[in-house]
Design a protein around this nucleic acid. Structure first.
Lengths: 212, 212, 212, 212
DNA sequence: ACTAGCGGGACGTCCCGTTGAT
DNA sequence: ATCAACGGGACGTCCCGCTAGT
């Protein structure tokens, strides 16, 4: 039973892997079924066996792309210890994508946000969810840093998340546009300095403990 | 009369004004000639009298959009005095667009950069030029601030420009995606603080002189 | 004054003469301004000086065509004496058009009736008026024949008119379609026999006068 | 299945049925693709899948129209017995069309003959064929009447056909133009009388035998 | 009366996304 | 999974009827 589904599921997976970069490079409006058949090596009918419409395939391919890139970030984060180190690991991993993209075409979340926000509610919803995950990933690191008395409680987790997300995504866009990683490098450097300069909780703790 | 060629030019201008938001909202691949005829009130023939192709119209509409939004920024800049004030004025004007877009659909430069960077060399070139202008606008303010002994020479004009551009564009994307201006507000606040904290030239001079 | 209008009026007349066969051959929808400029040797502006629209020119050209062909019929009629002879003259003249059209393209009234009856109320109205004239021309000959005691009062002028008009127009269509005058010849022969066989008034008169 | 090709053929048929009255009403030059898409409910692509060009569709629609109207005539003919009765049945059926057209817009053969004779050789050829059929339908009834010793051999089948066709077509045109069936009624009455008065073969035989 | 150019829109090709038969 | 065919509609060319400027 589980095996019966296996072959089809593999094909489905293969389609997603090969369709994701196509959508990410050409956009959802710009990618044609022809582009997809060429990328997958399947005929249209073959694709339609697994996805009811181009729209459904686009959504699944987007989710696939997000999960791939997301995994890269969580892995990077998990290899570091301490809030500042984890934040810097995230910045650093994302920054690397200016030279070696995690997925051809750039960040799928930003690409989809830009293309779909005014035109495709379904895709926009997926993009919102994905961006939220990224946001929460960063905010979560900060939160745990505060809880672990590593960062001062005055650090607003989601303000920092907004700033980091915005500048990293913006920098990726700039570096892709100019085909020049320098923009990303500047932003990475800036963010790293900001993160290192985040106020430590020790002072507050000391105040509390040793006060009076 | 000298003004003989007027009528056609007016129509051309009208087309640009009405086509620009269409392209900016739907993307260049997503905007159909039908969308454009509906937006302009002209039929295909009427449009093709003024632009040789949809591509040519897209380029002209992009340039028009850029010049409109660019003018907003230069105006804001010119109403302030001093490098820091001008930088803050730019940030503030751009930040306003999260609530009241200068052009329906967001920043045309970012939108076009995202859509066209992998697919449309012509558009990408225009987007590069436009982004370069923005970059130079910010860098220029810093440079003149240094020359006027207002900012310390250690401030790298183009590093700051990359950081500001990236985070503003990224923030606009976030606020549009979530339909929530808070992301832009956080970034504006952050950038404002950064700008205010830029080292003054006097301090550096004093330090040099009075050191030891 | 009268002379001042002369040159323009001549041009107007020339346009009508050269436009009429174009419309009659190609139809009003099928004739383009280009066809008309080529036929007249004028540019579009030249024609529009004399006619406010293609529609207006078409109406005038139709009326011109009708007056030309109508004149041929009245002339033929007026060269004969007596009702039967006049009717036969009309049939004969119309019949001649199968071999030598009075106007290139056939009978403008029928052509216009066929083309315009469902689509162009203005043209249809002109066609109705023209056809009515033809009808009255035939009916008038019969009427006067009855009044002159040449034909029996039992002859219905307008029934005969309908029959003659219908079969002559139909025959012209057939002969044009097949490029074969035989159809017209058969109808002319038939109508001539019918006309000759129309009951004379003498019998009725005699009856009246010498009745028992 | 054997019926595999069914769907497309049905659509093709539907297009013909809905395009035929459009062409018949507006003419072949006057009917636009837009008129046809509106009438058929299909878009251009849908129509061009089934017909290679507007011209090809026009020809097929004409043939369809002719076959529909032709069938009406053959049915009427076949419900009568004897040459005279069959001729009268044909006249009567055709005459009915002045009040209730067999096809919106009148007789497609005449309409096409008038529009296409000077401009469209292909359509003219189809019109010739169709008119020939009608001609032969009438002539055939007469011929068989002669062979069956019902009509005298002196009756010329094709002369009668010309006269009947011409006057019926002409009468239909008149009644449509004036929106008044009286013209058709007069012609139907006239033709009916003519048909009834056709010399019988018996009379001729008797004459021959019993002459002098 | 000519000329250039306007805005309109018909036309037909091409390819899109989708379906169904095999 | 393939393949052929379907209906849809975007695209751009071309020419239409008409206007304005000279």
């Amino acid at each position: 039973m589980a095996m019966a589904a296996t072959k089809g599921a593999l094909t489905r997976q293969r389609i997603l892997e090969q369709a994701a970069p196509v959508f990410n490079l050409r956009g959802y409006a710009g990618a044609s079924m022809r582009d997809l058949t060429e990328a997958t090596g399947l005929e249209k009918g073959g694709i339609y066996n697994h996805f009811g419409s181009k729209e459904a395939l686009a959504l699944a391919a987007f989710d696939h792309a997000v999960s791939v890139t997301g995994r890269r970030l969580t892995t990077a984060r998990d290899m570091a210890e301490g809030a500042r180190a984890q934040l810097i690991a995230l910045v650093s991993e994302f920054g690397r994508w200016a030279r070696r993209p995690a997925l051809a075409g750039g960040c799928p979340i930003m690409n989809t946000a830009i293309e779909a926000d005014d035109t495709n509610p379904q895709l926009r919803e997926h993009a919102r969810n994905a961006m939220n995950e990224l946001h929460r990933m960063i905010g979560g690191v900060v939160k745990r840093g505060v809880e672990a008395n590593e960062l001062d409680a005055s650090v607003d987790p989601y303000a920092l998340a907004s700033i980091m997300t915005a500048s990293l995504e913006g920098a990726l866009m700039l570096s892709k546009l100019f085909d020049d990683p320098v923009h990303m490098e500047r932003v990475v450097e800036h963010l790293t300095a900001q993160i290192e300069a985040l106020p430590s909780a020790r002072a507050a703790a000391r105040t509390k403990k040793g006060a009076r």
